[in-house]
Design a binder for these strands. Structure first.
Lengths: 185, 185
DNA sequence: CCTTCTATACCGAACGATCGATATAGAGGC
DNA sequence: GCCTCTATATCGATCGTTCGGTATAGAAGG
């Protein structure tokens, strides 16, 4: 390989930053190129199908992150309370304390929805059933657990939106502080 | 003078539909032109500063709507519980039962943020203090009332995001059903 | 009533810029 | 010399915007 260019993982991270800041449509190739330090042709070398491939890579990366960070928590022998706290810590890291927007929100807007809509829907449903698992472990009946899990997702995304709108991460952090009560309280 | 094909109010409504579906950056002049039935240049007749003017008109229209529909509720002699229920009904109509996205969310993304960020922030703060007023009337101390109002806003926007992502308005409607408890319960 | 006159409403065509995408050729490590 | 990666140059399409011009209708003057 010619040059010690950044590892693919870091490239995808930087692409993710742009998508999260500008959405799918707003993430122009120029922005993506500038953020990664790679020329257009290099981007097309790594992502032959262009922008859509880049977005899919970012989505896969986030999915992998959840698989690596959240799933082990769910599968551990910890108590529901401990699991919630670990998940909260993971979400806090993932969303950078509320400074980072959620791709699932951005990829459900405009033309991106046609392409990514089903994937977004499925990921949200997956997250919901994962959280519902904790609530069930805490003793809540299945339908109640699902409702609590959905409330948690609503709070998380609402906290992100309001924090972004106000330019202040306090709402999101308050959501995380209250998530234990929302989910198993 | 020729009669306008559509009253300005209706034009702004149709522009709002496009902005709410595609965001600011994603709302191309072609989409805006098709939605209103006006040619590109005709749009510049009504909105001399182009797209930004159109977005401001839509924002103003939403602000006026709140002034006409929500403020009278707040200023009425009704009980806090009745006020919450009336506000919930108004929000249900405004967001079309969860099928419509919130401009304040969309206009805080990407380049639009530079232009509309302060306005978005101010509108959210206004909405928060309006809702906090009801919570105070219900007997909650000021800081608690503000916290409840912010929770309500988080729930509303989270409900919209999750509903849009799942392609199902149930979460938003559930949020509205629970808003009374969130705000004064 | 019948003309001008003028303001408003609107359109098609085209502007320069940027969009996402590609083709070709060269540079660097095996 | 191959294979990987990147630079340059360019594509057609579309972006937001502007320009030149037409159509409509009420006002003003006779």
């Amino acid at each position: 390989m010619p040059r010690p260019a950044a590892p693919r993982e870091e490239i995808v991270d930087r692409l993710g930053d742009v998508f999260r800041r500008h959405g799918y449509g707003g993430a122009s190739l120029k922005l993506l190129s500038d953020a990664t330090g790679l020329g257009r042709s290099s981007l097309y070398h790594y992502f032959p199908n262009g922008k859509e491939d880049m977005a899919l890579a970012v989505l896969d990366s986030a999915e992998r992150w959840m698989g690596d960070e959240v799933v082990p928590i769910l599968e551990s022998a910890a108590s529901p309370q401990e699991k919630v706290r670990a998940v909260v810590a993971a979400l806090d890291r993932f969303y950078l304390g509320g400074r980072r927007s959620c791709l699932l929100e951005l990829f459900a807007i405009g033309d991106a929805r046609e392409v990514f809509g089903p994937r977004v829907s499925q990921r949200l449903a997956n997250l919901r059933s994962a959280l519902a698992g904790i609530a069930r472990e805490a003793g809540h009946p299945p339908d109640d657990a699902t409702r609590r899990a959905e409330d948690a997702m609503i709070a998380i995304h609402g906290g992100l939106v309001v924090s972004r709108g106000l330019g202040d991460t306090t709402p999101f952090r308050r959501v995380l502080d209250g998530l234990e009560k929302t989910l198993i309280g």
